[in-house]
Amino acid sequence: MTYLRIENVDKQFDRAGQRSEVLKDVSLDIARGEVISIIGHSGCGKSTLLNLIAGLTEVSSGGIQLEGREVNGPGPERAVVFQNHSLLPWLTVYENVNLAVAKVFGKTKTGSERHDWIMQNLDLVQMSHAKDKRPTEISGGMKQRVGIARALAMQPKILLLDEPFGALDALTRAHLQDAVMDIQKRLGSTMIMITHDVDEAVLLSDRIVMMTNGPSARIGEVLPVPLERPRNRIELAGDRTYLKCREAVLKFLYERHRFVEAA
């Protein structure tokens, strides 16, 4: 059953009279509860695609529907976890989540219900101990946890993650990947995640969407990852299916669609 439908989406940007085509004829159907990774070289329009789904940018042609309803503009039912966390530095951890909760549930929940909901989401990312700290006082991984809590607290229909672990060191990244898998298992969330990390894509996703190089990037291939959940990175390290998926992605990225420009 299709939950999110992306249909023949094109995206062009007009800048200083010059038209540049970023995405060409992108179509994808996503089921409820599915975890999708979008992978590709930098500049291939992955972030543009995520922004289109979020409604932060408008499609040039084609359409995006969530539960049969056309996406036209951003909204809390499509919450975004930003690469650089985007927490407001003048608010505490609690207040940052509260900003979202007060706006989304201001009319439907009472004050104490909202407080419980905020704490429940901070618990989910194991950050309730730092609720009165400001973003400058906590580590990068912790900030990203709070960013995830803020997004989850909007009770989104779909969670959009824009290279959520890109700015973190490898160990912290592994911790957060596990936390995200755990949360996804508990809540059954639908997720779309942008990444350029092959292992991350294989470990976390049900399907991996591989983009060709821009300009006019398309979906080159969609690779299903038939691995049982819960997944354990240590057990999977030697798993045949895991290695085959990994190889398929690597071959796509480095053989068939090598990044031609010097980075």
Partner: peptide
């Protein structure tokens, strides 16, 4: 004001006054 803060506001659908 960083674009990220504006994006947060847009996703939360904050009105002009907020």
């Amino acid at each position: 004001i960083p674009q990220d803060y504006r994006n947060v506001a847009r996703i939360l659908q904050l009105n002009q006054v907020e």
